[in-house]
């Protein structure tokens, strides 16, 4: 059999790759342009203003941009960590125990995936406002912990990765149930839990609706809502556009790094087969 390169498929894929890289390359170039260069020079050539743009962004309202980045890291990091833990214990219980109501609980939690976020966010805001939590870090963190999807994945993963015989043998030896989970099931489920953590991290980092509804003080904003508020002010003050552009570039760097660094944990294959069940 001939092993020549098939050029048509290769070129079509490269075309797709170029299309996906265009906005990223554009923002990379645009962030290097000074205010006057932005509207006057060809956009795929670098400018001379990168350092002044960075300095200006850092100086903007006493460095509020970096606070937004920290907030995003906090919401996504802590939220995804708690989410992975809750998914792990729930998935383990649903996969490894036979009890009345198991099917009902699982179905009800899964239905949560289908609930429109806006139908949840408005009453969540009003209820949290009643207990004085609206506008605080908690108001974004708490609703992000339960991930029906994460529980589903953890259940699939626990069923596949934790053998019943091992659990039974440890039970015979008199191990307590909590210990069974922490010292046997948890380590076996860990690779799957990293995947759940990553998916939930991206979901929270990319979320706009929930923090936009919940937060009013820009000191608590994640970077998505922060840049949005900056863009809105930019509509009347185009001088802010260079800040928005520089901020947009910096905001996508952490996620791309996370993504390239942990490539082997992006187990999309875990997602397949949802329809089968």
């Amino acid at each position: 059999m001939k092993r020549r390169t098939s050029w048509v498929p290769t070129l079509v894929l490269l075309l797709g790759a170029v299309y996906c890289l265009i906005p990223v390359l554009w923002v990379l170039m645009a962030a290097t342009k000074s205010r006057s260069e932005l509207f006057s020079t060809f956009t795929f050539l670098p400018g001379s203003g990168l350092w002044s743009n960075l300095a200006e962004l850092t100086a903007y309202r006493d460095g509020v941009y970096w606070l937004w980045m920290l907030n995003s890291a906090l919401y996504a990091g802590v939220g995804a960590l708690l989410s992975a833990v809750v998914s792990a214990v729930s998935g383990y219980a649903l996969a490894k125990f036979d009890f009345r109501g198991r099917g009902v609980i699982f179905t009800v939690i899964l239905t949560g995936v289908l609930m429109p976020p806006i139908t949840l966010a408005v009453p969540q805001y009003l209820l949290l406002a009643k207990v004085d939590l609206a506008g605080t870090y908690w108001s974004v963190l708490l609703p992000s912990i339960l991930s029906p999807y994460g529980i589903y994945l953890a259940r699939v993963y626990a069923a596949a990765a934790v053998p019943d015989e091992v659990l039974e043998a440890a039970r015979m030896d008199g191990a307590r149930e909590l210990r069974l989970f922490t010292s046997i099931a948890w380590p076996m489920m860990l690779p799957g839990l990293v995947t759940i953590f990553l998916f939930q991290f991206v979901a929270i980092w990319n979320n706009f609706l929930l923090p936009y509804v919940m937060l009013a003080d820009d000191g608590t904003f994640p970077v998505t809502v922060g840049l949005y508020s900056l863009l809105q002010q930019g509509a009347s003050r185009p001088a802010l556009y260079t800040l928005v552009i520089t901020g947009a570039l910096l905001s996508i760097i952490p996620l791309i790094a996370l993504f390239l660094g942990l490539q082997r944990y992006w187990r999309v294959d875990l997602l397949s087969g949802v329809v089968k069940s």
């Binding site: 490269l14 790759a17 890289l21 990319n206 905001s251 791309i256 996370l258």
Partner: peptide
Amino acid sequence: RTRFRAFSRLAIFLPYAVPGII
């Protein structure tokens, strides 16, 4: 017999890491 597969796959998957708002 397609070439540059790893690069194309990664580049096309990249926008997943970019929030809708950005």
